[in-house]
């Protein structure tokens, strides 16, 4: 059995075989949040989703939102910048913990 088979993305709705009403609500919510123009355009939402897909390391989402970005008019430069936002946020979220480390260093009389 293969993990992360690209064909599995199309089988996503099958998750609704059980607890279908919850899955239906999820898809409706997901489409409302990402699939329509609102205060943010579909392209802006697609770029956010692409960044989140990288932060969450979800290969299905990366495939889906690379296409969504292109089909809403984004170009590779914008998409790459979005991934850098995700990457730098991840790095920052780790680095900021160094403050905790420094507090521990002080506690240990090492700083």
């Amino acid at each position: 059995m293969d993990y992360y088979d690209p064909g599995d993305l199309a089988r996503f709705p099958e998750v609704g075989k059980f607890a279908k009403d919850l899955m239906d609500k999820f898809f409706e919510y997901h489409d409302s949040a990402t699939g329509r123009d609102g205060a943010l355009t579909r392209r802006e939402k697609a770029l956010i989703a692409l960044a989140v897909a990288h932060a969450e390391k979800c290969p299905y989402c990366i495939d889906a939102y690379t296409t969504r970005c292109l089909e809403t008019g984004a170009d590779p430069e914008q998409m790459t910048e979005a991934v850098h936002v995700a990457a730098s946020m991840s790095a920052g979220a780790r680095l900021v913990h160094a403050v905790q480390m420094q507090k521990a260093l002080v506690k240990n009389d090492a700083m």
């Binding site: 123009d37 579909r42 089909e71 008019g73």
Partner: peptide
């Protein structure tokens, strides 16, 4: 026209860009 194997974006939003 798309620079690859994908569908074109909405004409109206692309025109504004």
């Amino acid at each position: 026209n798309p620079a690859g194997a994908f569908l074109p974006p909405s004409q109206k939003s692309l025109e504004a860009d």
